[in-house]
Design a protein around this nucleic acid. Structure first.
Lengths: 223, 223
DNA sequence: CGCGAGCTTGACGTTGTTCAACTAGAGTGG
DNA sequence: CCACTCTAGTTGAACAACGTCAAGCTCGCG
């Protein structure tokens, strides 16, 4: 197993023995995706689990020509874990929103690790549960809040979870942002402009700077 | 371990050895809840995992005086699994919508089983993933469909997944149904009445009979 | 230079919520 | 036994929130 792989997986695989590490090395492929390229398609075979090491990926559901972005995946996270032990079909699509590097691991390999290494299994469960908690928050945001609250949630998430900075290039198009917030592109644009005019954030193209976290949080709360 | 417990858990625990079974018996309590009683409260300590053996339970998020029912749990399912390996706080509430019987199991006990029995761990992962897939469907229903589609989804779910019959007493109040569909009580009532008038379902109080699955599916698809 | 994709804006219509009022049944206490 | 109250269910009308449509704009790329 080469050092890159070892480094990337470190937090996940530091309890594996040599036999297990060797087995991974044999069942893993490293891939690059350009911005805009599709990693996996809703309905396709989920024969592999993807581990993101660089870049940014959106996971989205396609429904009647409209997409909803379920999650934005950053390096260090898996894509397709939720298809493990299921019917083996992806129930969402994944596309790169920045040049990305991934390791693609055989699904059976993951199952092998889970059944042979209980530490690993526990980490996977913890990871799945953290995801679920995140999805619950998103369900609330998307169903109980109005446009302003949803955009505020999205900006807070991008700033705190994804880019970890108050100033960032969000990479997402307005349409992506709209699909992340479950609204029309036009609405997303309008709210973004309002936030800019009200000096809650500073926006220039895709560059975004948060001016007042306090106001964003307030908007997030009142819905 | 008494036979009731053994029978109830059978599909989950059939791979456990005697030591493990004994340990469960020591760390498990059987409880009854009346219709309307609360099993666990959002924000409370998630020290126990609940296994439902009889009745029906709603899992819901409270947000600014409004509730959203995330899931309706039927016998044979766990409540609170998603709090395992997390910060130990329930991120949702659970309330009985019919007289219910449960086994309450220590969370550490579950972790013990997961780390000592890989079959069990794999079943848990499979269960969590099945849940996640279900949540994705719900996110789409709640965010991409209009009122009619959402009510249609709810009725189809109740009929096929929960009660497994075309004729059932849904137990849910109109308000519950509305909270399950993320809409106002008034809207739920109006759509229900429309469906009744259009002979898609037959409704008398809480008794519901599906007349045309075809129409319901059509409504579900067009949104 | 022209073309398409992303972005922006305003006008308009629809969907769904809110509010207010009214009904019926179930429980409670005088 | 009869007010009284509480909750669930129901209905209509007014209103607000959002999506849709149409038009125009800019910028990068072939």
């Amino acid at each position: 197993m080469n050092t890159n792989v070892q480094k990337a997986f470190a937090p996940w695989f530091d309890n594996l023995n040599q036999e297990q590490l060797d087995k991974i090395a044999e069942n893993q492929v490293s891939l690059n995706y350009n911005k805009g390229e599709i990693l996996s398609k809703q309905g396709g075979f989920a024969s592999h689990i993807i581990y993101l090491t660089e870049g940014l990926v959106k996971i989205y559901k396609e429904h009647n020509d409209k997409n909803l972005i379920l999650k934005i995946v950053k390096p260090g996270e898996f894509i397709g874990l939720s298809s493990l032990y299921s019917k083996g079909i992806f129930d969402y699509s994944a596309a790169s929103i920045d040049n990305s590097k991934v390791f693609s691991i055989n699904a059976e390999m993951m199952q092998f690790l889970i059944s042979n290494n209980s530490d690993f299994a526990q980490k996977i469960i913890a990871h799945l549960n953290a995801n679920t908690t995140q999805y619950f928050e998103r369900i609330i945001s998307l169903t109980q809040k109005q446009l302003h609250g949803r955009i505020a949630d999205a900006i807070l998430h991008l700033s705190r979870v994804i880019y970890k900075s108050d100033k960032f290039n969000m990479l997402l198009t307005r349409r992506d942002l709209a699909e992340f917030c479950g609204m029309s592109t036009e609405s997303a644009i309008r709210i973004l402009k309002e936030f800019h005019n009200d000096k809650i954030v500073n926006i220039e193209g895709k560059n975004l700077e948060v001016i007042s976290y306090q106001l964003l949080e307030r908007l997030s709360e009142v819905g």
